[in-house]
Design a protein around this nucleic acid. Structure first.
Lengths: 114, 114
DNA sequence: TTGACATATTCCATTATGGGAATATAATAT
DNA sequence: ATATTATATTCCCATAATGGAATATGTCAA
């Protein structure tokens, strides 16, 4: 078997750093492909390809406007990602990891404290 | 160029659904490889391989305990993912998308309302 | 109709994944 | 030393993604 397809879900689509950059740059706007090309400084086919992946997982949607295609970010599709990661929030500062860190810290603090 | 490596960052590591399942199952515990094999019902090499990827991006850490290896989730590594997705939270319900949806809804509501 | 512009798609090479099976390494017990 | 247990690594295969270049498609203007 090969790697999960980039178009399988939002998790896979946003794994690519360039696609995250694209999302960040586009969110809240309505942008033409060439406008995006301008903004990102990438080649047009590269922009189109990345947009295509994002479109397939619903992270962007596309509208025809004459000979232009207007893209816009559908941010709601990123909610599952946020929710998935957020479920571990309680462990961010409270984990066994932090116990270790804490113990180390106590030691060095003891040394520096007096 | 090929796809961004799975071990490049947390985003890429968690793109694989099985690795997300692994994280969900392991968080808050200290688990041996074979305990994980039990829990997940996967073959041992598969568990070891996925753990290896997660370890390389710091999502899990490993401790030698005799002939066992104890793994545990370092949830803090998922924080960047949550933060990245959360930055779009303001657009989840307020986007242009929703404007469209809203207009459609008004129309059908008008029809059903009277 | 022809040309210019906007965008998508195809072809290619490189790279690497995930699964399975087999095997290697490490540690313990006898 | 040897067998056993625990875990990691290697080899192979099928799949596919990325970037680049070239090209196809679609739309408007003259």
């Amino acid at each position: 078997m090969a790697r999960t397809s980039t178009t399988f879900d939002a998790f896979n689509a946003i794994a690519e750093p360039k696609r995250r950059a694209l999302i960040e740059a586009m969110v809240g706007k309505e942008l033409t492909v060439n406008q995006t090309v301008e903004i990102m400084g990438w080649k047009q086919p590269m922009v189109s390809k990345h947009l295509s992946v994002l479109k397939q997982v619903g992270i962007v949607s596309e509208r025809k406007e004459g000979r232009y295609r207007v893209y816009r970010v559908n941010a709601a599709r990123l909610k599952p990602v946020q929710e998935w990661a957020a479920q571990f929030e309680q462990y961010w500062s409270n984990s066994l990891d932090c116990l270790e860190e804490y113990l180390k810290e106590i030691q060095s603090n003891g040394t520096n404290d007096g």
